[in-house]
Nucleic acid binder design. Structure first.
Ligand SMILES: [Mn+2]
Ligand SMILES: [Mn+2]
Ligand SMILES: [Zn+2]
Ligand SMILES: [Zn+2]
Lengths: 145, 145
DNA sequence: ATACCACTTGCAACTGACTTGCAAGTACTT
DNA sequence: AAGTACTTGCAAGTCAGTTGCAAGTGGTAT
């Protein structure tokens, strides 16, 4: 996913059905610049001196999530993390429980998994979403464990 | 997993390295009786008139989790859910986003997934845990959607 | 059976993520 | 340029989960 210019960001936001406001542009630009999911605090800090209220950031992320622009993940740190969502390239995260280091991986085989779940259950009609994360130890932490 | 008698429960708790106290017996007995993961509130309520402080329940579940007796899952409802963990029979949950109905499914292929992640990443040495849940619509909610 | 003590519990106060209500501000339409 | 529906920011609130500590108790040693 290449980094779009400011003009394009506005287009993305409008296409999603929102007004291209400064806070939304700042949040979206920040998300384009990160390698791994960021927390609300990291987003607010990362936006720089253009202060955007945390309530606004929460609302923006909620809205972006609702239209599929953003994915929310749970690293079991007691808060949510967010990154841009690329539906065409499903990926997940492995998190070090020692130092919180994160890396991506692919290959969860979502479609097959969804089929499996639907055929095993009797009460479900469709799968709309999934969450998957692996927890482990990084090369550094595995030594000190 | 069949339901053990009170005596056996005490043995399970002691084998895990804890004293077989009344609150721990009550929590463990309750967890043996549920079909799907329960929240802290549900556990406290479910325990019945033997009131156990919620702090105690939190601490018990944390301890049981640490020794692998209990699994914690995230249904994205803003709180944690707990159930007994059976390491030999890995299973996951599909949750209806309309009505919170839950069912189990198996077949996440954990070992293969862990291998995949380790070979794709450069900084990780081992996978120790995983979380996976599917979200979807149940037969009832899919009609009203 | 009793005494002991490390482990547990319960209460109260606290933390921190996230939400809500509402008045003031602003992006887009006309 | 004006109008209006959509957004934002502030303050206050909610609620899951945590912390400190004094009182209670299970398991063990006498
Ligand atoms: Mn990622
Ligand atoms: Mn289950
Ligand atoms: Zn690490
Ligand atoms: Zn449903």
């Amino acid at each position: 996913m290449k980094k779009p210019a400011g003009v394009e960001l506005a287009g993305i936001i409008r296409k999603a059905g929102f007004r291209a406001t400064k806070p939304r542009l700042l949040v979206l630009a920040f998300l384009h610049g990160i390698e791994y999911p960021a927390s609300i605090k990291e987003i607010i800090t990362g936006i720089g001196r253009e202060k955007v209220d945390q309530v606004t950031v929460y609302r923006i992320l909620e809205a972006f999530k609702a239209v599929g622009l953003v994915a929310q993940v749970d690293f079991q740190h007691g808060r949510a993390y967010y990154e841009l969502k690329d539906a065409a390239h499903d990926h997940h995260h492995i998190v070090c429980t020692g130092c919180d280091r994160v890396e991506d991986f692919t290959g969860c085989d979502y479609d097959k998994l969804a089929d499996k779940a639907l055929s095993q259950t009797s009460g479900f009609a469709k799968v709309t979403n999934h969450s998957l994360e692996l927890f482990g130890l990084c090369n550094t932490c595995v030594k000190t464990a």
